[in-house]
Amino acid sequence: MRFAVYAPLVLSVLLSALAGVLARRAEPALAARVLAPAAVLTAAATVWSLVLLAAALLGDVPPLVREARADGRPVTDPVPGAIGFAACLALVVVAVRLRRAVRAERNARSALRRLTAGQPAGTELIVAACEVPRAFAIPGRPGRILVTSAMLRALAPAERRVLLAHERAHLHHRHGLLVTAVTLAAAADPLLGPVRTAVVFLVERWADERAAAAVGDRRATARALARAALSAGRTGTACALQFTDRAVTRRIAALQTGPLPCLWSAALAVLALGALPALLAADATGDLLALLSGMLG
């Protein structure tokens, strides 16, 4: 129990380190598909470990200890009280963070629903007459693509096709779900923050690759990204948007080189790393139950 209960924390850090490598080296669709479930499993195991550490405080409850001593049963306390209390505090923080993340997700979703309300049925593209170049996918049934008129004017015809294909890929492959999953995982386990960053980057790369395939032209795809980024920068909105370090430049560079290898071995390693904390947490659960039942007789 001593090792297993702390392992998910260590594995969260390992997974985060691996996520950065995968984001640069592996085929984006595969990398995102393994990182997201691994992050969710690891976060769940981490939270469960905190629950176990907090529950181990039960072993310190005076009546239990007294009773166990009186019956001559061994009193073993694998978790120092201070750590138990720290785990309780951490659980409160996790609950607050999760609640905030869920609320933010829900707000974003309802704001988007308002945007699509009143649009004619069966149209994919929603245009907003607006001088700020913006484009994003709105998940739903059916999914929609919102693009501002400034963005459409900034792009050449082939580049507009790239933009539409990119957003369509987000909708078709349900990237919104993947991002929501890692966002909640990172809210529950802040050590997984880098995994979230990697997955957010990877779904963009994934959509870029699908757009390049749909248009049949990697260079046009790179140009579309460059032009969209430049026109968004010109209007001074860049600082208002989330700033992913060098993200656009890295996406363009990736399009200028060939497609990346699948790296199945790395993907399997990530999945194993994601499953490990869950197994260890189960192991630690068994230990705690044995400990408590031993004390309770």
């Binding site: 974003a108 957003e167 919104g176 980024a229 430049l230 860049a238 993200a247």
Partner: peptide, 24 residues
């Protein structure tokens, strides 16, 4: 709420901007 969504592109530094202009 929309910053939380996938934006087609995000912000640029001055250096990146120059590199992109050269590309185009």
């Amino acid at each position: 709420p929309i910053a939380a969504l996938q934006q087609f592109v995000t912000g640029l530094s001055a250096e990146e901007e120059r590199a992109l202009r050269e590309l185009l």
